[in-house]
């Protein structure tokens, strides 16, 4: 199955792209996708997603099909889902 990731804000700058398709063999929980992104990315990307205790950063807004979710452990991601990562921005 294919999952589309939309990177926003500083994460997009760090990744060097605003979108990416990831392929998985079967439906996967959101936390697994976040870990996969962290594993394949730089340390800076990991720091945007996880805190020093390895927990998802609470100020990163994660959207699945444009709806905010916080229960990453129980949110099952299926084929064609779009996941958006929105770090906090404060440009004025």
């Amino acid at each position: 199955m294919t999952v589309t990731i939309h990177y926003k804000g500083q994460i997009a700058t760090e990744v060097g792209s605003s979108t990416e398709d990831l392929k998985f063999d079967e439906p996967i929980y959101l936390i697994g996708i976040l870990k996969a992104l962290s594993d394949k990315g730089t340390e800076a990307i990991n720091d945007f997603i996880f805190d020093e205790k390895g927990q998802p950063t609470r100020s990163l807004l994660v959207l699945v099909n444009d709806e905010q979710v916080i229960d990453f452990q129980k949110t099952l991601i299926s084929d064609d889902c779009v996941i958006s990562l929105l770090p906090p921005i404060a440009g004025g």
């Binding site: 500083q10 945007f48 100020s59 770090p87 906090p88 404060a90 440009g91 004025g92």
Partner: peptide, 20 residues
């Protein structure tokens, strides 16, 4: 919405006047 202090935010950011 942002319960943790956003440690990664930096004072200097890219900006077009039309976007702001």
């Amino acid at each position: 919405i942002y319960p943790d202090d956003p440690e990664h935010w930096q004072r200097k950011f890219p900006v077009f006047g039309a976007v702001s």
